[in-house]
């Protein structure tokens, strides 16, 4: 087992999942690294970097809480690369009527432009009969925001609204 692992848990959203899972990890002596936990639709998803003892022991320790909350879990060995954040220099926001393929179209343009995605989140808002899709992406890209803007405009339908903004980080 490598020093760090990535634990992924997914299940129906319920109160107390985070507290229950992290209590078990604490009891097992696991150190948490960077994590991402959020509600997606009616589900709760957790991704946690862990540094702890034996992989089998962690899975066994979590089995009770996983059963209680009906969580599916998965553990992968990873390289941690902590203290080495890349700073995003561009933010892309897209919103429009929900339709199949929007994320694929947008990210294809961005990938062709050399953008490396650091953070992407999307939401389905609006109503069931008129769903609205919202997409926020931050990444690192050598192309200018203006160049990405032009590439997106050329590739996307007119009814898709978007903006591309440079992120300028102030260091003080």
């Amino acid at each position: 087992m490598s020093e760090w692992t990535m634990l992924t848990l997914v299940g129906r959203d319920q109160e107390g999942i985070v507290a229950a899972v992290t209590a078990v990890l604490h009891k097992e002596g696991c150190q948490l690294g960077e994590t991402s936990m959020m509600r997606l639709g009616g589900n709760f998803s957790m991704m946690l970097m862990l540094s702890c003892g034996a992989e089998v022991a962690v899975l066994e320790a979590l089995s009770e809480v996983a059963e209680q909350f009906e969580l599916r879990l998965h553990l992968d060995q990873i390289e941690a690369q902590l203290h080495d954040h890349r700073q995003a220099n561009v933010r892309v926001t897209v919103h429009g009527a929900d339709r199949i393929g929007l994320v694929a179209e947008v990210t294809a343009v961005l990938a062709a432009g050399g953008l490396s995605v650091l953070d992407l989140c999307s939401d389905v808002a609006g109503s069931a009969d008129k769903p609205l899709y919202l997409l926020q992406i931050e990444g690192v890209c050598e192309l200018s925001a203006e160049a990405l803007q032009l590439a997106l405009r050329a590739a996307l339908d007119e009814d898709v609204q978007f903006s591309v903004d440079e992120i300028e980080t102030l260091l003080g």
Partner: peptide
Amino acid sequence: EVGREGCL
């Protein structure tokens, strides 16, 4: 306005 910051 919102902006991104870091600190020494």
